[in-house]
């Protein structure tokens, strides 16, 4: 698979959130504000990039039976590194969303890309795969949190867009996350189905 193809698959057609519904816990938890969703998604993407790179670099030293354990150790290290940097550079933002930062280790997107891609492919291919999936994850969380913040509070990235009374608090709360995520996945699936029907028609 070419590097550009693996990159674009991660962003759109194999988007980890909207297509595979991976990393649903952080997706639902942090997306009540756009800035929260974006910051945790950025941290996750950075950990994904660093861990994919490292795992593909040392894959020749890892026996198959311990690849999950080794990958987890590497992911945990980079999560702790990113957490320390996040706290030291953006303490005020960390105060709001930092509680979700250590949970990046449990994000299944990272482990999936590590054991399905990084241990098999070259360093360059792993970097492109991590970039694609990372940007896909950032786009998904930013879209979801942006919609929730806008419809829930009338604000976007903490700027008042609509009037104070515009918001529907249900969307900003936990059920709203499930509703909005479900609607976006439904939209993704309908576009995919329409494309498939279109291709089938052209083939006939």
């Amino acid at each position: 698979m070419s590097n550009s193809k693996s990159f674009f698959e991660g962003v759109v057609s194999n988007n980890p959130v909207f297509v595979f519904v991976l990393g649903a816990c952080p997706t639902l938890a942090v997306t009540n504000t756009a800035i929260g969703g974006l910051s945790i998604a950025l941290c996750t993407a950075l950990v994904l990039l660093l861990s994919n790179f490292t795992i593909s670099l040392i894959k020749g030293l890892i026996p198959t039976k311990v690849e999950i354990t080794t990958s987890l150790l590497i992911i945990a290290t980079f999560t702790a590194v990113i957490q320390l940097i996040f706290y030291s550079q953006l303490p005020l933002l960390y105060d709001k969303v930092g509680i979700y930062c250590p949970l990046i280790i449990t994000n299944v997107v990272l482990l999936r890309r590590a054991i399905m891609f990084a241990v098999e492919e070259t360093v360059m291919a792993s970097i492109f795969d991590a970039l694609g999936n990372g940007i896909g994850f950032i786009a998904a969380l930013t879209l979801l949190s942006g919609i929730r913040e806008l419809l829930g509070t009338g604000r976007l990235f903490e700027y008042q867009v609509f009037s104070e009374n515009f918001g529907t608090s249900l969307i900003a709360m936990a059920p709203g996350a499930l509703i909005v995520l479900g609607l976006i996945i439904a939209f993704f699936n309908s576009v995919k189905r329409a494309r498939k029907v279109n291709l089938d028609t052209q083939g006939n």
Binding site: N32, E149, G152, T153, S169, L170, A172, M173
Partner: peptide
């Protein structure tokens, strides 16, 4: 406080 409620 909860976004959409107390955060207002």
């Amino acid at each position: 406080e909860t976004i959409g409620l107390g955060a207002r």
